[in-house]
Simulated assay, not measured.
Amino acid sequence: MGRRAALLTAAAVSALLTAAGALTAPAATAAAPKAVAAACGEGSYQAEAVLSGSTWTARRGGTVVHTGTDMRAAVQAAINSLTAGRTAKERVVVRGSGSVPAASRISLPSYTTLDVCGTINVTGTGSGDQAPVYSRGTRDIEVQHLNVTGSPLYGVFLRNVQNATLGQIDMRLSSGLGVRIDNRGDTSQWTRNVRIDSVYVSGASSHAVETYGVDGLTVGTVTARDVGESGLLLNQTVNATVTKVDAQNAGTGTGYAAFRMANRNGRVGSSYPTNIRVGEVVARGGGRGVFCVSESGGAVIDRVTLSDTGNNAVLIENCYNVTLAAQSGTITGGGEVRLAARSEFPNNKDITIQNLTVTNSSIRENPCGENTNFRNITLVNSTQSVC
């Protein structure tokens, strides 16, 4: 029987059952199929940079705006050929792979979409805020696909931007920081409305993804492998939703964590309403699993799976209104679950640790926080010393 016939038959059965009184509620509407991201380079665009042999050619429509062997120059020429003063996004597609010096940038102005169908290999050394993809003081920018290798200072650097989207980002690095998004050029203004769909970072010497001074952040998945510091680090970021952080060997030998919140992250005004929501944190090896520090909070982490961390599996230090394992969690081996405080900040307050199975580890609270709750904790060859 064909698909259409099968659907009609199901509908007919539902109608008969309803008429007979077997159904007391309306039939559920079938879920719409999940949208599939377009393949790199598909769809309309206003300019492109294309590699043929060893020559890059940048075109705007039928007009050639650049030819040469320098990938960065060709991509920048394609971007610069877009409509001046535009107030709607225009798109540049890059077709080919090449090298870009670490001490240089491909800069995105406002209302620009970049789709890189190839790999940017970053070579040499540099200093400052250079990055193969860079934007500052702009709005409505988007990077749909990007693959980076080599040794960038930053793979992507966005500062004081609004309405920024990163789609499918893959970085296999030998040093540097993966994605940095901040407001440190003008701290009187938040960077606002940032979306990150999927980021994979390996080999970075610093963080896979770091934010500072962002209001409005939506993250799909951050996957970190063998990075020197954190998988995802949120500094002074509010109104954030993260689906998953998946880290292996993030911050080995350091105090960094698969997921870290610091520098008053989650603080809204002078309080900590719940505004940081994390679906899942996975940490295998590395430094810490989850780390909240320096007057951060307002966070709920639904699920954790933390194993064999070299430092604390969890460290909550001078944080407020934090719930760990709101739904479920396992901690196996590695460092302890620790609630602590430094004297220069107010002590922990309104911390809830629940729904955890802790195996071959320990839970310790010292000093005692205010309104700390431990619920539904299963200890397997583990100890608990709390207030």
Rank of each mutant, 00 (worst) to 15 (best):
S188I: 14
S188K: 13
G228W: 00
N163S: 15
N163C: 09
V161K: 01
S202R: 03
S202D: 04
T211D: 02
S202Q: 02
G155Q: 03
G167E: 00
L158A: 02
G155E: 04
D215S: 10
D182A: 02
S230H: 09
E210Q: 08
E229L: 07
D182L: 00
D182G: 03
N160V: 04
F157T: 05
N160Q: 05
V227S: 15
A204Y: 01
S175C: 09
V219H: 00
G167D: 09
V222W: 10
S188M: 12
S202G: 08
V201D: 01
S175Q: 09
G178E: 04
V156P: 09
Q189P: 12
T221C: 01
N183M: 06
V222Y: 13
Q168N: 08
I196K: 15
L158S: 05
R195I: 09
T218E: 11
V179T: 10
R192M: 10
Q162M: 13
T223W: 12
G185F: 00
D197L: 12
T221Q: 05
R225N: 11
A164E: 10
L166I: 12
V227M: 08
E210K: 13
D170I: 15
N193P: 05
E229Y: 08
A204Q: 11
T165I: 15
G178N: 10
L158N: 11
V222K: 12
M171C: 03
R180N: 12
V219G: 01
G185I: 03
N193E: 04
V156S: 07
A224H: 08
F157D: 12
D197G: 06
T191A: 00
G213Y: 01
V194S: 06
V214D: 00
G216N: 04
Y212D: 12
Q189T: 15
V219Y: 01
V201M: 02
E229D: 14
R192H: 05
N183D: 03
D226K: 15
